[in-house]
Structure formats: C-alpha cells, structure tokens
Amino acid sequence: MTSFSEVTAERQIKSGPLSHVSVELGHLYMEDFQAGPDRLRQQFAMVAPWLETVRRSWQNRTPGGRARISTCFLIDDYFSRFSTPDELVPMILDAAAENDLVIDYLARESACAEADGVKLAKLVEDRLVPDPPPGTHSWRPPPHETGWLANGTRSPVAGAGQAMKPQIRWEPPTQNAKRGHSIFVDVELWNDDNRGRTWSCPFLAAVWQLLRLGLLRNEGRLPVQPVQVDGGFPRDWDELPPVVKLNKSATPFSAYTTMSVLSTRFLQVELAVRTILSQVSVDEEVLKQVLSRSTDEDLRLEEELVDRISYVFL
C-alpha cells in the first residue's frame, strides 16, 4: 500500500449501531391515504401477527432471547405530496397503536434521493457494477449514462444500422443467470426532463434497503442519522427530518437484516429492487465491519446482500 503519511491520504470508515432486524410495517402512498384511516387500520391488523412471528424467530436465534428489532414506516413525499406531517403522522401512529404496533422510525421517501445534503441516490448509482452478459470483455456504457439496468442481455434493436447491410432480426432477451429459461428484468433507474432528474420508485426502494442495512457511507461517515421528535410534528414535509425516531427506547434503525411486510402490489417493485441490489458494490470496509460485529455476536450473516433481505407479501 502506498504509505501515505498525510491525513488526506488515509481512508477512515465510521461504523454505526445495528439491530438484528429492521421490520418495515408498510409504505404509504397517496392512494392509501385517500382510502382513509380504515384502510391503514386494516393494513396494520394484517401486519401485526407477522411482526410477532419475526420477533419470536429472532428471539430463538439470539442468546438470552435479546433480539434487537426495530420497526419503521415509509411515507411517500417524493412522487406526490399529500396532507401534512402534523396531520398524517398522528393518524398513522393511532392506527398502529390500535393494533398494538409500535412504529420506532418514520422515514420520508425523498430522504432516499437526498438527505441532509447528501445525494444518496447518486451515491448508490455510482456503486452499480452491472452484471456483465457473457462476452463482456471490457468497459460498457454504465447505467448512469442510459438510466436502465438489466439482469441480462436486451433484444437487439435496429438503431444506427449501415446502408446495404442485412436488417437486424429479432432475438429474445436473455437473463445472465438463467436456469434453462430466462426471466429478463430491465429496470428504469431514473428519467430526466426539464425539471431535472426523477429517480424511479424501485431505485429509491433499493436505497431504502441499503440505509436499513446500514451499508451506506458518505466520505466515510454515516449519511442519515435518525432524529428524535417528541410530538409536535411540523406542517411542512421539508421540515420533518429524513428519518424520525418516534420511540425513545427503540433499538437502532439499521440492522443486519431487513424484513418488509408489504402489499402484493409491491411485488414487481421489489423484484426490481433485488435486481438493482444484486448489482450494487458495497464498500469492502463497511462489509467487513458488519461481518466482524455479527461474528462477535455469534451470528452467521448471509454472504450476499440480497439474501439479507426478506419479505412478507399480503
């Protein structure tokens, strides 16, 4: 290693506290809100038994049953804005409490794009290392030039063909890691227009998973710190911290693993999330920190990132 004797030459990576599992109790989009508080209550009623199952299974896995489980809830304030925090947050908390659920952390979806001045989505985009189709022997246009990420090879398109050359014939797309047959997935990461860049829902959801796994760093520091808010929510979404800590005695927001209890309508989004996450290169140093901690706790973590993420679809 180059022996840098100067401060700016050294790389320092901070580590953060971790729970065993981060359980997402739901996503709230405009249409859920429009359906009224009953819809939310029904949703929490369905989620409650699954949270209990997760709790029991982790208590069995940890010495003395001291499982650290944190819960979180995500509100969309990125694609559409509705209501205000001082109106909406108490409503969510009430609906949860009626089902004996405690929401430890509340997050805004726009935090996954940018939080506290850190462009998290860009951070993750730069760490995409696309799954190379067989025959990739060199550099290829990275996703940040095209805005799309696939799990295989696309069908050829008739583009800038040459005159008097045979026309390109249709060929099927193929999945790189196919087993006999392909399930080809091509995910739009963002689109640009005159108002600037809009990150796609699956891309922000992938950032959300990485945040919950505590695997992101900005210049070596942890990018989003939950901020405790005791009642009195602001009237403007921009004034609400990206991640709010609602429960004083909650275990850490980030965790070794994540579990998301979601409506089946998120199935496609989450397939896209896994397609993205299986192509994100997480800092080796951060991975080592997490690994050595889990080993200290006698916990065996899955080697691959996507295997640390699980779901219940309702």
Partner: peptide
C-alpha cells in the same frame, strides 16, 4: 462498411 442510416446518442 456502409453509410449510416442514422446515429444514436451512444454513437
């Protein structure tokens, strides 16, 4: 090689 019929952003 032949004359190109068009060119795209990548080209």
């Amino acid at each position: 090689g032949g004359e190109f019929a068009t060119f795209d952003a990548e080209m």
